[in-house]
Design a protein around this nucleic acid. Structure first.
Lengths: 255, 255
DNA sequence: CGGACGATTGAGGCCTCTCAAAGAAAGTGG
DNA sequence: CCACTTTCTTTGAGAGGCCTCAATCGTCCG
C-alpha cells in the first residue's frame, strides 16, 4: 500500500474484452454475501469502477500490519485470512478467521490506522476498495450504505458472540462451537456443511479460542473417538452435526 | 419503542424557551465525544431535530431487550449501562459497560433486531435517535456519516481488545486492565482518572472478565494490600496508576 | 428490625496449562 | 528422488490458577 502512489484510480478503464478478467462484482460468486448485496446492475457497475484491482496474497503474507495507515477495505474474493492483535508481550492474539465474501479492515476506520494484522492462511485474492471513494458512493447509493452498515453491525455482533464463547464455555464447548461456526459459514457459501478443510493450524485454533494447542489436539481426538467427527490432519468431517451443536450448547450427550 | 406510534417526528418543534430543556446536542456536555462530534452549528441543529426526546431509564430497567425490533440508536446522556447476551443456559454474559457519550444499539443494525439487552446500572438518560431518519441525514451530511463510521469501527476495535484481554491475560491482569480502562474513560470525560465509583457489582465485573465473584473480591483485596488501590465498597481510588498499568501489561512489580 | 442482596474469606478440587518427548507431515536442498 | 530440517501434531505426566462450595459479615431498604 505505502509502496504505491495513490494514483490507482487514475487508471483508464480497461477495454471491454478484459472486463471479465477484471473480475467485476456482478461476475463474482460472492456478490450476494459481500458489499454489493442488494445493488442493482447500474449501482454494481459504479461500485466496480472504484475497486482498483484484485490483489493476490500468498500464504503467510500480510495484507496489512498493525499501525499501517488505512486507505482501503478489502473484500476477500478467494481464500482465507486470520486477523490478530499483538500483545504487550509480543505474542499474537487471533481475533478472527475470515473467508471469501467477508470484509477486512473495518477496525481501522476509527483511528485511520490498522489495529490488527491480517495474514493469508493460504494463497488468496482480495478486492481493494479505496475507502474515500467508497464514501463518495455512499452519498448517492443509500442501498450500498445500508449494506455497509449491516456488515459492520454484524461484525460487532460476531465479536460479542466470541466474547460469550470465551467467557462462558468449557474447552469442549468452545471447540464444538468453533466447528459448527465454520460449518455454517461454508454452508452459506454453497460448500458442504459437514466436510471441509481446516485452513488454520491447531495452534491458531487454540490461540483464537483461548486454549493450549495440546488441548485442541486432545479434544479433537476425543470427538473422533466419540464418533462425532472424523478428522485427518486438516480434513474434517462433522459426522453428527446435531450432537456437535448440542455439545456447543453445553449439553454433553457423552456424559 | 413498540408502544409508541412512529409519529414522533411529526411533533411540531418546541417553543424556543423550552429549547434548553430539550437538551440539544450543542448544549450537551458530551457532544465532543458523541455522534455530533465535528458538526458545525447548522448540522448539529439538523441532528437535534431528528432526536425525538430524551428518555429516563431507571436503575435496573431495560432500554431494550434481546429480540426487540430495532428502530433507534441511543446516545447515553447521563448514567451507565451494561449490555449482555443471554446464554443457551439462560445465564447472562456481559459484553460491555457503557457511559455517557457512548452509543447503544449498533449491533442491531445488521439483523433489525437487538442482539443483546441493555440495562441501566443507575438512573440514566438517553437520547433516542431514530435510525431511519439518521440514514436520511447521512445523505446530506458526510461529516456525520464519517463520525458514525468512526464510532462503529471503534466499537469493533474495543471488542477485539476485550477478546485479547479475555484470552491472554491472568485474572490479575484482567482486573488491572479493567480498572485502567475505566480510569481512562472517566478522564476523557473530565472526571478524575484516579477516583471514581464502580457502577457495577463485583459479580458483574467478574461476569464481564470471565472471573468468579470471589476472584474479583480477592484480587481487589490484594491490590489494596499492595497499596496500588484504595477500595471501599463501590468507591475506588487508583493510588498508583503506573504500577496498575504495568500489572495490566503483565509486569508484576510485586512478584 | 429483619430480610435480601452484595462482599469477603477460607478450604478443597478440577479443568486446563505447562513441560517434555516423540511421531508425522511438509518443505528444502543436494 | 532421497536425506534432512522444520513445522505441526499427538500423547503423557504433573502442576497450578481459578472455580466451586460454604459460611460469615456488612449494607441497604422496606
Amino acid at each position: 500500500m505505502s509502496s504505491l502512489p495513490a494514483s490507482t484510480h487514475k487508471h483508464s478503464p480497461p477495454p471491454v474484452n478484459l472486463h471479465a478478467l477484471r473480475a467485476s462484482c456482478s461476475a463474482c460468486s460472492m456478490h450476494q454475501l459481500c458489499l454489493p448485496m442488494g445493488l442493482d446492475q447500474g449501482d454494481m457497475q459504479r461500485l466496480d469502477q472504484i475497486i482498483g484491482r484484485r490483489r493476490r496474497i500468498k500464504r503467510d503474507q500480510s495484507l496489512y500490519r498493525m499501525g499501517d495507515a488505512f486507505d482501503m477495505l478489502y473484500a476477500i474474493r478467494l481464500g482465507h485470512f486470520k486477523t490478530y492483535q499483538v500483545n504487550s508481550n509480543g505474542s499474537q492474539q487471533i481475533t478472527g478467521f475470515q473467508m471469501a465474501g467477508e470484509l477486512l479492515g473495518m477496525d481501522a476506520i476509527g483511528t485511520g490506522r490498522h489495529q490488527c494484522e491480517a495474514v493469508a492462511l493460504e494463497d488468496s485474492e482480495v478486492c481493494e476498495i479505496p475507502f474515500s471513494r467508497l464514501e463518495e458512493l455512499f452519498q448517492d447509493m443509500p442501498v450500498l450504505l445500508r449494506q455497509f452498515h449491516r456488515i459492520m453491525s454484524k461484525e460487532i455482533s460476531r465479536e460479542q458472540g466470541v466474547m460469550l464463547t470465551l467467557n462462558s464455555m468449557s474447552a469442549q464447548q468452545k471447540l464444538a462451537a468453533f466447528l459448527v461456526n465454520l460449518s455454517t459459514r461454508y454452508a452459506t457459501r454453497g460448500y458442504s456443511a459437514s466436510r471441509f478443510q481446516l485452513r488454520m493450524t491447531r495452534e491458531e485454533i487454540g490461540n483464537y479460542l483461548g486454549l493450549a494447542v495440546e488441548s485442541v489436539s486432545r479434544l479433537l481426538t476425543n470427538f473422533k473417538k466419540s464418533g462425532v467427527i472424523e478428522v485427518n490432519h486438516r480434513d474434517v468431517e462433522l459426522c453428527d452435526l446435531p450432537t456437535l451443536r448440542a455439545v456447543a450448547l453445553g449439553n454433553d450427550p457423552c456424559a
